[in-house]
Design a protein around this nucleic acid. Structure first.
Lengths: 251, 251
DNA sequence: CGTTCACTTGAAAGTGTTCAATTACTGTGG
DNA sequence: CCACAGTAATTGAACACTTTCAAGTGAACG
């Protein structure tokens, strides 16, 4: 496989990064330049720009001028866009280690809104700082492209979910996706808390809030999960995967 | 508005490009470097790498090694991904002036398949060539990011469509989107041919083929359009926009 | 300790799908 | 130029799934 100039990403997510700021905000994807060395000036920026948002507070809203990129250190965030008639469409839930507001880089405005689902700590990288870094470290741009490309892939899967799957498949897919992401961060993949409401989940999955409840109840009857309010425990991963019609480890 | 290092895109799509190869394959977005000058070596590549695909032929398939980026000169292309149980989800229809296979840059494999809907002429830019160009012309990377970011925005709208809109809204939105894209290329926005089948449309919109037919029939009864097989004529743009619940010129 | 909000559950009503049958077009070969 | 085959599009009717509306439960929080 020829090493392309842009195709720097060997698709491996299991990078090790010993630096403290690097690990806890998960922005390591950006800290590394192409060669693999760590960009210390970026890390320096990161540790100095921490902010906390309480439940319901907005990191940014649609149309606001693009000021900063956010990396989630802890907590969780819901992103949404607005339909033309004012309704919101939730486009994603984001947990520790994920980056927000990437494509605002291009439009120079935030194209979605981001709202904290619980008390959430983020690293805020001001765009001026980021611009400087881009000049020093050309690898940064590749990393950005890698991350944006990943976002495109994620959207593609979401389109399949919304366009082809029924309610059960959607819920199962959703639970498995969460499970996986928790596993990746060394949280339990079989027992976790949902930081989002049934209504948020329904919005995200294109289902009514009531349908979300009913499907969860059905899964519980069938012994696939135990769900108690925001607490979820997966009892039969294999069956859940069968319901989702998804291979064990697809995002 | 500060001119950011990466935020090169003034969001204006009305660039003028006098070079012939530039105009007819629509890759002008990539031909320009940050300063605005045209990258002649890229253009040179473009005019030398033309290929034609017949209806039903594939430009690339999922999982194949990434060899080239494609810019459509004429005709139309359908892109799709595969669900885990083998069904296809159409992710887009692409006409002259649009770029394909961008995010394969990162994964080094094609993540979707592209199939010609009719006889279609493309410019094929081999990745090696593209890599060289990236080294000479740093602006190219910004342009790529701009284009990928645009793709993300498009996906966001599609998610709203699939997650929130009913069948009528979806069809109306679809017709308006096509209309707009034809207008942008100086084709008639009120009278055009659909190069894709009802089945393709339904797949894309998350509807059954029969539903697509029924909605088109209903639109015709109500005097919004006249549709005769693949021919569509929009008679009442305003009402169609009202049905779509969309502002006159979104996307 | 009461109010509020999120969640849950039931029943009725839509909306879109599926299945099946028919019609219309396209292309091919005589 | 016509007949035929094959595909695409259309239409009808029954059905299934999800939503909507409504009411009730339970947890959280001041």
């Amino acid at each position: 496989m020829p090493k392309h100039h842009i195709a720097i990403a060997p698709a491996s997510q299991d990078k090790n990064c010993s630096h403290i700021a690097c690990n806890d905000c998960g922005i390591y994807g950006l800290c590394h330049t192409v060669g693999g060395e760590v960009d210390l000036s970026l890390l320096d920026t990161l540790v100095k720009n921490r902010r906390t948002f309480k439940r319901g507070e907005f990191l940014y809203r649609i149309g606001q001028p693009f000021k900063a990129i956010f990396a989630i250190r802890s907590g969780s965030i819901k992103t949404a866009i607005l339909t033309d008639d004012g309704r919101a469409q939730v486009t994603g839930f984001h947990i520790a280690g994920e980056l927000l507001a990437l494509n605002a880089i291009v439009t120079n405005q935030y194209t979605s809104e981001a709202c904290a689902l619980e008390t959430t700590s983020v690293c805020e990288v001001p765009i001026e700082r980021f611009d400087e870094l881009c000049e020093i470290s050309p690898g940064l741009q590749y990393q950005m492209m890698r991350i944006m490309s990943g976002e495109i892939l994620h959207h593609q899967e979401l389109m399949v979910l919304l366009g082809k799957k029924n309610a059960e498949e959607r819920m199962a897919t959703y639970l498995l996706n969460l499970s996986q992401r928790f596993a990746k961060r060394n949280y339990s993949p079989l027992q976790f808390n949902l930081s989002m409401s049934r209504s948020d989940i329904g919005n995200y999955l294109g289902l009514a809030e009531e349908t979300v409840c009913r499907i969860l109840a059905r899964f519980q009857e069938e012994g696939l999960i135990v769900s108690q309010r925001r607490k979820v425990q997966i009892n039969d991963l294999a069956k859940l995967q069968a319901v989702a019609h998804t291979k064990p480890m697809a995002i």
